[in-house]
Design a protein around this nucleic acid. Structure first.
Lengths: 347, 347
DNA sequence: ATGAAAGCGCTAACAC
DNA sequence: GTGTTAGCGCTTTCAT
């Protein structure tokens, strides 16, 4: 492994000079000819800085911790992680993902990450739950991903549920549906509220009146199927906006029983859950994908900006209303939802 | 952050002594009374070693790299990662997971991990594919997970496909099935061969003759459904061993069309893919789960043993034939497959 | 049995 | 402008 010492020797200068040059702190401190020579030798030798060694002096490891208990269970975690990792890499950071099981294990893992000197933390809780943030994280740079803290004080990146509902409903309207149902979730989770509002807004905007008979809130269980069955019979919808693919599944099942074909007799839009449905089994099912990659990407970007205390002004922050532009990874065409960034009073 | 220096000061000894004691290298070198006092002060002060600082001297960071391109796309990745992380933590290591996209990105990520001084690598490729191991990994301690290298030289941990097929088929036999079909995969992937062999072995063992009309190899697509349809009509199976849940799905669909109920008229065992089927939608579907957690766990254990060059003799290596005992995480009851560890000539 | 000293690779004051 | 010096926290000879 090639060190600054070697470069210094070859260039006939001191290590300090090499350090200055390689950290781009040489403006007006090191002669250009010397600086260039150092750079030349460095690249020729294939010099790679040793981040661990510098961390000893600077107190910055350029490592970010990513904490979540859903990594092992949720397929989405991958998208968020990939986004966060992409941003981290671009900014010169290393992302360390840790999946936890229960509070005491979580504390232990955070402890371990702190020992390794991570500069800050991403704390993710899939599907935007209100979250008790672990004490051990509160004194560190911290950004929540797909989660909200009780007090609403910590910076977070969340999907814009309103736009998801709005967009999905508008699509159904655009495809000619007259009686659009909303098959929502049972629990009063954050997403539910926003999506319903978006659904109503889209209806209102196109001069339709909200009809509560077209709305059901179901769990992920047996009674759900009955409820959707009843919905079919009592309200005769021709379009369905479903909270997720699992809910969309019930619609599919009920339609099949009635000999209705999705995409011809009725239209269905679901928000992604287990994408396998839409991908392989029910290709007629349209999904609105949650911007997992983007959430991770922006959360990591925000975190680094906090760590480096650079002003947020020069961050290209995502437009909260417009569809996101593709970042560096390919973004599925179906993404039509935006991010909101609930900025906070810094503690 | 409390350092050895502080402990040394409080104990009235030198840092070297503290280092000796805290690394358990004090046998016959440090007086017991002193050693005990040092330990007492250390724990009282809540001393935590700084792994980065020691790495500077020892060249060991106690960090393991986990490389895979499937993290973002496959739900299984989580299980493997969790297993690897659990083992790493127990052995005093930190797991750094990196998901890659394409070979050049992969090389870049490996490069980054090396700069951070990872002691060794886990290289995962879900569903046991034959793999070209990146050059950059070949000079490092390396264990493959759910993958095999072309030359069969690198240590790997893979599911025992034979036992999966054998076990699944035996279950169908035990539940009274007479005509057991195998709905396999189309591609000649490693798993396919082993599972088919297991299927045949189970049949042979119970005095049944192998009937090739009961076997189909299908993709994950439209024609698959037709093939399974034909299988139903031509061979009249009463039991199905399916390569994965997606294949099991076709069976479910065909059964539904014929008014057959799974669990009563026919029996189905699938190997897990998208577990959602068995969990929520088709509860009658029995799944054999792949030992993702265990694979990650043992792979990390093996890797550490290589890094520390401890003899493999004193490792509790898993029995390759018996069902795995539960490790530290809860293991689903459905696990009935074993791990094989293809040990290799060290380069 | 213990401590002094050197050094891992790098950064940061401070001389000159 | 550049080199010298000191030191981050820890390990490791090598004296004593």
């Amino acid at each position: 492994m090639v060190t600054m010492k070697e470069i210094a020797k070859q260039a006939g200068v001191s290590v300090s000079t090499v350090s200055l040059v390689l950290n781009n702190r040489d403006e007006g401190r090191v002669r250009d000819t010397v600086a260039n020579q150092v750079r030349a030798i460095a690249s020729q030798l294939g010099y790679q800085s040793n981040p661990l060694a510098s961390s000893l002096r600077t107190g910055r490891t350029h490592m970010l911790g990513f904490i979540s208990e859903d990594v092992a269970t949720t397929p989405y975690a991958g998208g968020i992680i990939l986004g966060a990792q992409t941003a981290a890499r671009q900014l010169g950071y290393m992302l360390i993902v840790v999946s936890t099981e229960g509070p005491q294990n979580e504390a232990q893992e955070i402890e371990a990450l702190k020992r390794y000197g991570t500069d800050g933390f991403l704390y993710a809780k899939m599907s935007n739950r209100i979250t008790n943030v672990p004490e051990a994280l509160k004194d560190m740079p911290l950004v929540l991903v797909d989660a909200t803290d009780e007090a609403g004080i910590i910076p977070s990146v969340e999907p814009d549920e309103f736009h998801i509902g709005y967009d999905a409903t508008k699509r159904l309207i655009a495809s000619g549906c007259e009686r659009i149902a909303y098959v929502g979730a049972e629990d009063p989770i954050i997403a539910e509220r926003g999506r319903l509002d978006g659904y109503r807004a889209a209806l209102a905007e196109t001069g339709r009146t909200f009809d509560e008979h077209l709305v059901v809130h179901v769990g992920n269980n047996e009674p759900a199927l009955d409820a959707v069955n009843t919905l079919f019979d009592s309200a005769c919808p021709d379009g369905f906006f479903c909270f997720n693919d699992a809910r969309a599944w019930y619609v599919y099942e009920c339609a099949a029983r009635r000999g209705l074909t999705i995409g011809r007799d009725i239209s269905v839009v679901g928000v992604d859950n287990h994408r396998v449905f839409a991908d392989t089994l029910v290709p007629q099912l349209t999904t609105v994908e949650l911007p997992h990659f983007e959430m991770g990407y922006w959360a990591a970007t925000k975190l680094v900006s906090m760590i480096e205390e650079s002003s947020l002004a020069d961050m290209e922050w995502p437009d909260t209303t417009a569809p996101l532009p593709p970042l560096n990874a390919p973004v599925p065409a179906a993404i039509h939802c935006a991010l909101i960034e609930k900025d906070s009073v810094r503690q």
